[in-house]
Computed example of a mutant assay.
Amino acid sequence: MNRFSLFVTALAFALPTAVTAQGIPVEPIATPPQTGAIALGTGGVPGMPAESWFTLASRPTVRNVATATLLPVLPDKAKATGAAVIIAPGGGFLMESMEAEAMKPARWLADHGIAAFVLKYRLDATPASLDAFKQAALARFAAAAMAGAKGGAVIPAPAPALADAQAAVKLVRARAGEWGVDPRRVAYLGFSAGAIMGVDLVKTAAPGTTPDLFAAIYPSMAPTTVAAGAPPLFVAMANDDELFGKQGYGLPDSWRRAGRPVELHVYEHGGHGFGFDGKAGTTSTGWSTALLTWLGAHGWLTK
């Protein structure tokens, strides 16, 4: 695999996008308004450069996050079901795809009466310049691609990010009354790195932090330890996933072997990082419909 191909793999892991030989445009943008975002109070990241926003293939993305926040996206009260979903976007713990894997699914969930909460978690530091950042991403994702090709686990969740996920679950439950949420119906939806973090969240099982449902979208498929009280699991991925497609199905099989509920959707094509919309022209475009059906089966669509 040459240097360009490795970088393409990196970018594919970061965001849902069709990669071509022309590369992917990366452009700096101003920090968008994040009205209503709540600081989680989990601390900072020493030596972190200033938070930086950019578009990757025209999709808003953030890096160098030193302060974790949770942004509520609430449904109209007339259609609210009382259920909630915390959303953790992907990006290899170097960046976060804040539209395709966060705000878009949040608005969709709210349209279906489910309170959504977008988690912007702390990241590993990257160089301030975009050019240097590309090189850092190249190294990170090259290692991830190689590990995934060998069937191994890829990039465990850093401790600060995991602590942010734990704090997010606690906060939603603590303020459930304020947001019209049932504290016994708090799900977690993670994409890629966010899904890897969700596996660690469930496995760690710190008091008050285990979600009631867990949806993992193109996660690492490596097997894991599953506790007797693990929440029901939903997995969606593509068979041709560049990072995790050769790992087998160890993650959902771990749930099955532990006697816990699990649902697995494997799409023939879609690659890694097909995002909320799925990859055009493939059946991966139907994954969100499958997720909604699964949420409904567990009572997330009714009061």
Rank of each mutant, 00 (worst) to 15 (best):
A161V: 11
L162A: 14
A165P: 01
A167G: 12
A168D: 06
V169F: 02
L171H: 10
L171F: 10
A174M: 06
R175Y: 08
E178V: 11
V181G: 01
V181H: 00
V181D: 05
R184D: 15
R185A: 02
A187Y: 02
Y188L: 09
Y188N: 04
F191I: 09
F191N: 05
S192A: 09
S192K: 00
A193N: 08
A193C: 12
A195D: 08
A195I: 03
M197F: 01
G198N: 00
V199C: 11
D200K: 11
L201K: 03
L201P: 04
K203H: 13
K203G: 03
A206R: 14
P207Q: 14
G208D: 15
T209Y: 05
T210C: 11
P211C: 06
D212C: 09
D212S: 13
L213D: 02
A215C: 03
I217V: 15
Y218N: 03
A222T: 12
A222H: 14
P223M: 10
T224Q: 09
T224C: 15
T225C: 03
T225V: 14
T225K: 13
T225E: 15
A228D: 14
A228N: 10
A230F: 11
P231Y: 05
P232W: 08
L233A: 13
L233R: 08
F234I: 07
V235H: 00
M237N: 07
A238N: 05
E242W: 10
K246D: 11
G248H: 05
G250T: 05
G250D: 01
D253H: 12
W255T: 02
A258H: 05
G259R: 06
G259P: 06
L264N: 10
L264P: 00
H265A: 03
V266C: 07
V266S: 13
V266M: 07
E268W: 04
E268T: 15
E268G: 11
E268K: 13
